[in-house]
Nucleic acid binder design. Structure first.
Lengths: 208, 208
DNA sequence: CGATACATTGAACAAATTCAAAGCTGGTGG
DNA sequence: CCACCAGCTTTGAATTTGTTCAATGTATCG
């Protein structure tokens, strides 16, 4: 796996150091990456799939605070602050992660100026994304909320289950279902039936 | 003004450099710090007051994305990313700001390892706060939303106008008013009437 | 004493949630 | 190959909750 794709400012030696203090793991939809309260002994970097950041409230409901698309660290702020995770992270789809040993990673960060620069840029990006996500969430009109999500994440719209999309948008699956119907009625979404072409049968028909 | 209070890792020389590329300004409630679309020629650091971060949607409604309490940079991510502000910032109360020349500040950041470290910690903090704010906003129940705000920001609850609090919480002033009444009825809030003591009149009564 | 800005209240309305039931779909075992 | 099950999706009806808009109340300041 080409780490250099994710950490562009680092030279070969530095990249191989990062490789030496990490490993790549695969995770399935529904797998938990870390729970609220966990100590960040490992630092996770998403390279494939979708991750949901959430909190479980007293009454047991999950509130989605963010979703993370690769390439991105997950919960890096707790790592940097050296506090236990105040949030949970769960796979919303199958995916892959780089898992770093936190201790070595933070040591490396503290020593390496380029990596620091990259981290600053990375954190700034994350803040921007969080604002943008927050903006989407605060849209109270479900129709606009869903429309925005489809527009910005067509790929996720087709690859994630509706329950997962609903959870990302903090709406109920029922509302999502009804909203999609409305969007279809309004002609904003077209329903395409997938037509499988069975070539051999076509051939045989033509040859009759 | 003791910059060293805000930038703890810097030595005297560095602090006086920061002073040389900045000035302190005062702003009043309702003043705009920057508009969405502005180029971040200046970088703002809040040292007193409350700032609202928001976006104006197509239909003209403001959506609050965050509120900022001192000491804190405002819109620092746009400065770091060298993009124009994708958000607006407005004073929700009277306050004070440090205004840096962005060009010199970013140059300084790029050269100074301690400042970089401090910035990384600072950005991590901001991400954490944003999640926490997001959590509060996503609470759909107005009663809990308001209760949480009062609990976490008793000072702001008493110092900000209700319209400002409502705007921070993304609810209408009417809802806030009704919610506060409910909280009072439930005994979660006690209404204390402030009794002003007019000492001179008291004196004169006693001297009669 | 207005005037102005802010706060509260009421009634009608809009929109999402909840809960229950029914519909689909893909996979498994007989 | 069919029947059945489990998980996901859709639909309906009742309910809850916040918004909107209009009106009234309240406070502060010249």
């Amino acid at each position: 796996m080409e780490y250099s794709k994710f950490f562009k400012s680092l030279n070969n030696k530095e990249i191989s150091y990062l490789k030496s203090i990490s490993k790549i793991i695969e995770r399935k939809e529904g797998d938990i990456i870390f729970w609220e309260g966990d100590t960040p002994k490992n630092t996770f970097f998403l390279i494939e799939g979708v991750v949901k950041i959430y909190k479980t409230s007293n009454n047991g409901n999950d509130i989605t605070l963010n979703y993370i698309l690769p390439p991105s660290f997950i919960g890096e702020f707790a790592v940097i602050k050296k506090i236990s995770y105040p949030i949970s992270a769960e796979m919303e789809s199958n995916g892959k992660l780089i898992v770093f040993e936190t201790k070595n990673l933070t040591k490396f960060l503290d020593k390496n100026r380029n990596f620091m620069r990259e981290m600053i840029m990375y954190l700034a990006n994350k803040i921007e994304k969080n604002y943008s996500y927050c903006e989407d969430l605060m849209e109270k009109n479900a129709k606009k909320k869903v429309a925005k999500f489809i527009k910005e994440h067509e790929d996720l719209f087709f690859s994630l289950k509706h329950t997962k999309i609903a959870s990302i948008l903090n709406i109920t699956p029922e509302t999502l279902s009804r909203t999609l119907r409305e969007l279809k009625n309004d002609g904003l979404i077209e329903e395409r039936k997938i037509v499988k072409i069975n070539k051999s049968k076509l051939e045989s028909l033509l040859n009759d």
